[in-house]
Write a protein that binds this DNA or RNA. Structure first.
Lengths: 153, 153
DNA sequence: TGCAATCAGTTTCCGAGGAAACTATCATGA
DNA sequence: TCATGATAGTTTCCTCGGAAACTGATTGCA
């Protein structure tokens, strides 16, 4: 019955380590992509828009797990940089279609290589089975808690 | 030689999933601790200060992997909330000792329980060996890339 | 000594994202 | 048809943390 005396430490929590490692990885990636003039989130949106259909801001927010407000600002920045365009939908004037410009499209493969390199830098030394298991677990966690989480906004 | 055509997707990168899951976990934890009037980072600092010796801002920055500036502001907030105190060191007037107040110390066990609960919520369903392996890998990653990373500021 | 380099901490500026209020559009049904 | 409510996006306000310039104290060395 020493529960009252046991004050768990930071290192006891997976969430703590997750946050630290994630910050390290994202920070390193940020340094890589900023040479291309984009941020980590911008890369994510660009990659998501890479498929031919493009996407609406709402769909982006949904699939990327961020708020509408964040996506709105993100798309605005991409537009300012000449990497994406917004065009109003004709069937429903509330919606809009976001699409890559030629510049934006051309940038994605370069950024994808940087992402590959960053992953390799951080996780390349892990044995393949460990790496696969990590991927599996993270995907499962993302999926599991995405569903039962309160609608992201 | 199709390398040029293969544009890797977001879901192919561990860094992407790490960031998403970490954000989910930290966000959920944030909701829990804000009832106690503190942020996630503040919890981290409070827990680190819980040991009897306290710590200096520089030591906190080092062990928590954040910049001096961030720690300085963090300690300032904790002081404003009456949870910590700054006192100048006598041997070296550049340094200062940060310590918890009685209120701050009393808060730590409560926050630790919330951290336990949050970890349980997200990772409790994982089989014990998977959870242990995840912990092992994350700790190793944090350690490995902490050392060879450019000095954090 | 005394000047330069270093070191601890602070501050300023900036970009980023969440929450929530707000605008414009569309759907529903009384 | 018109009021109500839902929906898509935008904007405002806020907090947060990093980068880098800055202050004051200390060390080292000429």
């Amino acid at each position: 019955m020493a529960a009252k005396r046991e004050v768990s430490g930071l290192e006891a929590h997976l969430g703590y380590w997750l946050r630290r490692v994630s910050n390290q990885v994202s920070h390193a990636f940020r340094l890589k992509v900023e040479a291309c003039g984009v941020s980590v989130s911008e890369w994510v949106v660009l990659r998501e828009l890479y498929r031919p259909e493009g996407a609406s801001p709402g769909a982006l927010a949904q699939s990327l797990g961020m708020t509408k407000g964040a996506v709105s600002k993100l798309v605005g920045r991409l537009e300012d940089k000449g990497l994406a365009t917004r065009s109003p939908s004709e069937v429903d004037r509330r919606q809009q279609a976001v699409a890559l410009t030629a510049n934006g499209r051309a940038l994605v493969p370069r950024l994808a290589h940087l992402a590959d390199a960053n992953d390799e830098e951080f996780f390349g030394h892990l044995p393949r089975p460990v790496r696969d298991e990590l991927m599996r677990v993270l995907r499962e966690l993302a999926r599991t808690h995405h569903l039962d989480s309160a609608p992201i906004d």
